[in-house]
Design a protein around this nucleic acid. Structure first.
Length: 638
RNA sequence: GCCGGUGUAGCUCAGUGGUAGAGCAUACGACUCAUAAUCGUACUGUCCGGAGUUCAACUCUCCGCACCGGCACCA
């Protein structure tokens, strides 16, 4: 049996899963289910990434030990996967022993490859700043420009992977295997990134404690990304090179959102090259979801209310909508009105109603599956379309064109509706025409049986519901059972039931919709319990914040985000470069009163010196901090 | 600033060097087995703008505009 191995990324446990995660896992699930029905030996992996500084910090913020925090968060993911009918074989947690042992073996092998080296950062270090200062910025005395304190000479070790060595091989691999990275734009981006040259990557952190120590130097913790990537092998039992590992590595598909392709398409393959291991076959990146045209954003409270929409339309409709409406690989705009339209037009009207009308006719006139004794007009056309649909579907699934795949299946669904209409089967209830009626209805039922298999990867529950009403065994629905027309057993009692996609009027919609979710706008202000996050008042006092007025503003040549500003501090005027060009035009800034950090060391940005910094809220959008009413220029702010 | 992509009917998108297509939505008609479902017909388009190549361009080339993405950059 041919093996098929599909993975999703492992998601950071610090943070609730959102619709983007759902999209990835649904897509991966469809692939997994499709290949299972095709007779492949499938292994489907998803999981969570529980290590690293971010998780550690979130745990601290909640006053929990890291492991306890992870134990609390991991179920939020498994619950969602259950809700979405995700059929993964393993939910990997990176705190599991199997994974840890695998990572150690992986790192040991990587080190043995000779492509890991230790490098030392050394330089003048200021403890309060937690920062190194380059020689060229310092005077003879070696004092911290911020604190005016003597700097220490510090050396810090880090382990690096010689990624740069693999630049050429990666480049030619991507060029020679057009399907290695799915969707042209991602591929081009990577190639141009490669052309710019690769730098070696750090694979360890010595300042982080929550993670897996390097086997060859336990004072260092494996960098989370390096550790996380190896999960695709550790989950299979890489440590012991188990049978499962032998069977399934290399992965057929690494499914992910487009933002993390670089790790998967460059660093991961390069490390595998170093280990002389085969590379994954496809890196498949899908686009991002937006909601009503806006980027999803926790801080601005823009999110897709999966709970409500699934409660209203059902999980299969949700899965269907995501994969049918958006061209896979491109960004997609999630709109409830579109989900509603798809639900009614495609699911309720086309498919649900088809099942209902055919079963209604059979129930009324035959009770059981009739014998197809009397071929006639349109029969061959329908059968030809069956073969055609199967063929197309194969090709489309191979290129991850889920939207077109569903469109193709629906072409068949519509054809059957048309068949019923064209033959006017309901008029054939006379003794001489009855055999023809039976034949047409047999074909209708057979088409529905075929459809139940075609849609099974996308809408597993719906497939089962259809099969239940046809009184077919729910499990045995492989693609081999629909390869040829006529597999539906004759004389089977049918079991017409409730509509599988009942229409949803506005009233029901409102009833089912939960009250408007409390704007998750302000992210929960978690009590900062951790002493390590606190600074002393004297630390705070080190900041010199002053009221200032913008007196001139212009763009910085050759920079997208930078504006060069002249600000008046009363006692003096200064030039400040601010990264706000995407959010403010120069004209609107002039005359504005702003808050400036005045005792920041100067830097040169894009060749322009900046002698301070503007305070601004920098979430998804950037908003300048201003004063409620104007105050004299130069007033201290604290 | 550099690199790449996109711009086609109200909406979501296909598409080919020879005067443009699908689904949804809309209108009208047919039918009445069915979840006010189904089926048929019709409708609208300066195929982003401009120039060029060509007998002929929406499709090729160049320039421009808009939007999106990658890189640089965000003290």
């Amino acid at each position: 049996m041919t093996a098929f191995y599909v993975t999703t990324p492992i998601y950071y446990v610090n943070g609730e899963p959102h619709a983007g995660h759902a999209y990835t896992n649904i897509a991966a699930d469809v692939l997994a289910r499709y290949h299972r029905l095709k007779g492949y030996d499938v292994f489907f992996l998803t999981g969570v990434d529980e290590h690293g500084a971010n998780v550690h910090k979130s745990a601290e913020n909640e006053g929990l030990a890291p492991q306890a925090y992870c134990d609390k968060m991991a179920p939020t993911f498994t619950k969602l996967w259950q809700r979405l009918n995700i059929s993964h074989d393993i939910f990997l947690r990176t705190t599991s022993e199997m994974h840890k042992r695998g990572v150690r073996k992986f790192l040991t092998a990587l080190e043995a490859s000779g492509d890991v080296y230790k490098d030392t950062y050394e330089g003048h270090y200021c403890r309060p700043c937690e920062q190194f200062f380059p020689e060229k910025e310092l005077t003879e005395e070696k004092i911290c420009p911020v604190h005016q304190l003597p700097l220490e000479w510090v050396e810090e070790e880090n382990y690096f992977f010689r990624l740069s060595k693999y630049q050429e091989r990666l480049s030619s691999h991507i060029r020679e295997n057009p399907m290695f990275i799915h969707l042209e734009p991602r591929r081009n981006e990577l190639l141009s990134f490669l052309e710019a040259g690769l730098e070696d990557v750090s694979i360890s952190r010595s300042s982080v404690s929550w993670g897996i120590p390097l086997p060859f130097d336990p004072r260092h913790i494996a960098y989370v990304w390096i550790e996380a990537l190896s999960n695709y092998m550790t989950a299979l039992g890489y440590e012991t090179e188990s049978e499962r590992y032998q069977t399934f590595w290399p992965a057929d598909v690494h499914m992910m959102a487009k933002d993390i392709t670089r790790f998967h398409a460059l660093i991961w393959p390069a490390m595998l090259m170093a280990l002389n291991l085969p590379l994954p076959k496809h890196i498949v990146a899908h686009g991002w979801l937006t909601k009503d045209g806006e980027a999803l954003s926790k801080t601005r409270g823009i999110f897709i209310d999966m709970d409500t929409d699934i409660a209203t339309y059902g999980v299969d409709a949700f899965r269907y909508y995501l994969l049918r409406e958006f061209s896979f690989g491109n960004d997609g705009d999630y709109r409830l009105s579109r989900l509603n339209a798809r639900y009614h037009a495609d699911l309720a009207n086309d498919l649900g109603n088809l099942l209902n009308r055919v079963l209604g006719l059979v129930g009324k006139h035959f009770k059981r599956v009739p014998e197809p004794t009397t071929p006639g007009e349109f029969d061959d056309e329908v059968k030809a379309m069956h073969r055609e649909t199967l063929q197309k579907l194969d090709a489309l699934m191979e290129t991850f064109a889920f939207d077109t795949a569903l469109e193709t299946i629906w072409g068949f669904v519509r054809r059957i509706n048309r068949y019923i209409q064209q033959t006017e089967v309901w008029t054939l209830n006379t003794p001489e025409k009855r055999p023809r009626m039976g034949t047409i209805l047999y074909n209708g039922l057979e088409a529905l049986r075929i459809i139940s298999v075609l849609i099974a990867p996308f809408m597993p529950d719906t497939a089962d519901k259809i099969r239940q009403q046809l009184n077919l065994p729910v499990g045995a629905n492989g693609f081999d059972t629909i390869a040829t027309w006529g597999g539906l057993p004759k004389n089977l009692a049918i079991a017409r039931g409730e509509p599988i996609f009942p229409r949803i009027d506005k009233k029901t919609r409102q009833k089912k919709a939960s009250p408007p979710p409390s704007p998750k706008a302000a992210p929960k202000q978690k009590a900062e319990k951790s002493p390590s996050n606190l600074i002393s008042f004297s630390d705070f006092q080190k900041l010199d914040l002053r009221a200032a007025k913008v007196i001139a503003a212009e763009p910085v040549e050759g920079a997208d985000r930078l504006l060069k500003l002249q600000v008046d501090l009363g006692a003096e005027k200064r030039q400040v470069v601010a990264g706000i060009a995407a959010h403010y035009t120069p004209e609107t800034l002039i005359g504005k009163q702003v808050i400036v950090v005045t005792n920041l060391e100067p830097v040169t940005l894009r060749g322009v010196e900046s002698q301070g910094m503007l305070l601004a809220a920098s979430g998804d959008s950037v908003v300048l901090a201003t004063l409620e009413t104007e105050v004299p220029l130069g007033t201290q702010i604290r």
